[in-house]
Design a protein around this nucleic acid. Structure first.
Lengths: 121, 121
DNA sequence: GACAGGCATCGACAGATATCGAAACAGGGA
DNA sequence: TCCCTGTTTCGATATCTGTCGATGCCTGTC
């Protein structure tokens, strides 16, 4: 949004880990940093995604099989679509083990978002 | 999105302060909580809004006049539009003082978002 | 090698969103 | 009171997003 630069989700490739962004009180964000952080927040800006994310995060071991979390009231393709978005944003990683695909949270990325919103300064 | 309940931004009226949401690792979010939190994240999911927010947050005293922060590359009505969204989401509050309107961050709401993403548990 | 189950991708559609210019509104000063 | 400046609201439009059914791909099993 905003500029409609066609960047899809320019965030993090796989797990290039977050050089990103001091607490938001520390100074104004550069446009580039804002773009990256906004993409992460956008990933969590949908109720369905937030529930999927919380299901993974709260699951034993910090990871969950798609089959364990896909009961959120939307169709299977939609679940897959949302998981992909979370993955593209760098918030989740995935791994296939035999028949099933497991998603796990990317702790460093989530921690970066949390730290950015930390108003202590 | 997702359910298209026409709720605009059902978040927080003025400053009814966040009864919301334990760390995301603590268990899966209820649909209602997910809806509320998603609305807050959505407010920060736009680069322009994120920059406006960071400008306010990093400004001396945690507040800033619209005239001080409106240089983000979009038209002035658009700035106003985005500030309104941040305000509706409960992340900012505003106050008119004579000619100018000052926006300030709502610390408790931001802290709640940060806490929710805190993976320590 | 054929089949079944789990998951991802594709194509299409309805509803939501960002953005802008123009116009309305509010305060302050002459 | 009138005008000027700063800010918000309104109406129109192009774009994006969430959702679904159908389909394709990969794995394990028979």
């Amino acid at each position: 949004m905003s500029k409609s630069k066609v960047v899809e989700l320019p965030v993090l490739d796989a797990d290039a880990v977050v050089p990103c962004c001091p607490p938001i009180t520390a100074g104004e964000l550069s446009p580039a940093d804002a773009e990256r952080m906004a993409a992460m927040f956008k990933a969590l800006s949908d109720p369905v995604r937030l529930r999927l994310f919380s299901k993974v995060a709260s699951h034993a071991g910090g990871e969950a099989c798609v089959c364990d979390i896909s009961d959120v009231g939307v169709s299977q393709p939609t679940v897959s679509h949302h998981l992909k978005k979370l993955k593209d944003a760098g918030l989740l990683t995935s791994e296939r083990r035999g028949t099933w695909v497991y998603y796990q949270v990317a702790p460093s990325v989530v921690a970066a978002m949390s730290a950015m919103l930390d108003l202590r300064s």
